[in-house]
Design a protein around this nucleic acid. Sequence first.
DNA 1: CTGAAAGCGCTTACAG
DNA 2: CTGAAAGCGCTTACAG
Lengths: 339, 339
Amino acid sequence: MTIKDVAQHSGYAVGTVSRVLNGHPDVSEEARSRILAVVEELGFKPNSNARHLKQRGGNGFCILVKGTHNMLFMSIVEEMQSLIKRAGRSASVYYLNEDDNEVELGIQVYHEQKPLGILFLGGNQDNFKDRFTRIACPCVLVTARADMLGFSNLSSVSTDDVEGAKQAMGALLDAGHRKVGIIGSDSGEITANTGSISRLRLLGCQKASEKRGLTFYPQQAVASRYSMEGGYQAALILLDRYPDMTAIFAISDVMAIGALRAIHDRGLRVPEDLSLIGYDGIEQVDYCVPRLSTIRQDVEQLARRGVDILLKQIDGAQAVHEIVSVAFIQGESVRTIRA
Amino acid sequence: MTIKDVAQHSGYAVGTVSRVLNGHPDVSEEARSRILAVVEELGFKPNSNARHLKQRGGNGFCILVKGTHNMLFMSIVEEMQSLIKRAGRSASVYYLNEDDNEVELGIQVYHEQKPLGILFLGGNQDNFKDRFTRIACPCVLVTARADMLGFSNLSSVSTDDVEGAKQAMGALLDAGHRKVGIIGSDSGEITANTGSISRLRLLGCQKASEKRGLTFYPQQAVASRYSMEGGYQAALILLDRYPDMTAIFAISDVMAIGALRAIHDRGLRVPEDLSLIGYDGIEQVDYCVPRLSTIRQDVEQLARRGVDILLKQIDGAQAVHEIVSVAFIQGESVRTIRA
DNA sequence: CTGAAAGCGCTTACAG
DNA sequence: CTGAAAGCGCTTACAG
């Protein structure tokens, strides 16, 4: 069943059928209705491979998600899909592991699907630096910054990780905590010149401390994967290492949830014995006992701005770099202690 | 950058390049290495549209996931992706809401991508009954049954929902509970002739009760969405309705997690005041306080069998219908009470 | 407004 | 083992 059959059945040439199918204006009403009738009758569906071969490229978006168990990303994907649908386009989603290279997958997808644009949820600066030049379609990196990468076809929408962590750490410090353990994901040098989210958040911790005239020791931080199990293990390490610790800041909620259980398993209680604060604002924190305090990333904004910017870029706009604000969410997991 | 460029640079004809690219055996080692070197050097990527045009259809799989926040499905998808990759194929994933029609999306995807096969994670019998005939490629429905649907290109891999629920309910009854509330998703008639997972699980509850000479009242069950919030609200309703209830069985873990918080908010404790058991075996139950007892669905088996069956079907095998066993996982959320 | 024809980038019999 | 050529199903200048 091809366009040729439709041509035959309708008495028109394949070119005319193609024009009707693509809604070109220069076709007679008669031809249009006759052909459409045949299409309907035969149940004809155009072969998209053939179509795209000529049109050089697909008409959908790709969303590459780094981290298969990341609840925050899940929510963003969901939101993005409905936005993309509303814009009359389609999207296919690819997942990859935290440790895999999203840019390599991007290159592959770019060539296989020839998408209109790609949305990266999460990403590592180094991967982009190395190989992103291989991707020539409009792209947006979401939740991580890309401004200092300087690619003309790569925008970014991120949250202010330094500020968010500053707020989280600040909340603990202001509640009187002085011995704060941190569950991070990366124990490299703390600097703003790197895109590592973990480091940016550690930098926020440092700033919050210094602002209050306190010293921040990078050694307070333990590395962990972005998972409940990772948080669980990291919390155990912290508990062993710092017996006088009174609070933990986990740089993601899933880690915090793991930590919550670890603390419980050590016979301690949150917040009575130990305060705990997470980061991300995933739905699940509201169902924890105690409800976790956290820094909420605005899922809706991240999704909306990401899709919006990509759409504009496809229409020829320049790459832009936006930062979406974060908000402190008060839970039940932080106790105020007296000096 | 096309296969033609590679041919030119390597000094071979396009046909030979194509054969190398596709791993055909009848190429000299010399040609192979020379061509591969050029491919590498030029960074050539074949145009999959052109490739598929000839091959009549895509070479990848599609995974349609019903429910964007379903942790169980997330895990299955993850597992499937690595299996598909290992089989030398690719997969793109599409998410749709719990209430949307997966078969309609399937039809769309079927025409747009011409996939080798489609994996449905979750699905509603009625949707399949109505429109599945429009999909002509091999398909597998995972976690729901399709045996009584009788489509020749639709296999299924499911778990024994009746048996699983029977075990869950049985565990509560054997622990001495007599007033058991149920959080389901569907309040229709309980029968085995429907594919509704909720109803099958309710049927399991009924069987567990009757086996012990107890009467089961469908009114014990309250409907809920498959979400934490749904479970939270449903638990509140149950708590109001059955003040003498001593246990709750939620037919999914996410519902159970919501219920856990609801019970806490009513000033009750699990398992001291109320026992609780979930279903699915998602990772998160292990980090709850208390750790939730649940029925574990074998994610790995579901994924492995699903992909396997699809692969075989693509090679011409008939549709099959398999059932993967479930296991009771002992947590800390069920208390034994004396009569 | 419509048709005939070239061409998209690849695969695959068919010769040799 | 390799090349030349036909053809996959569609789109789109180019004529008319």
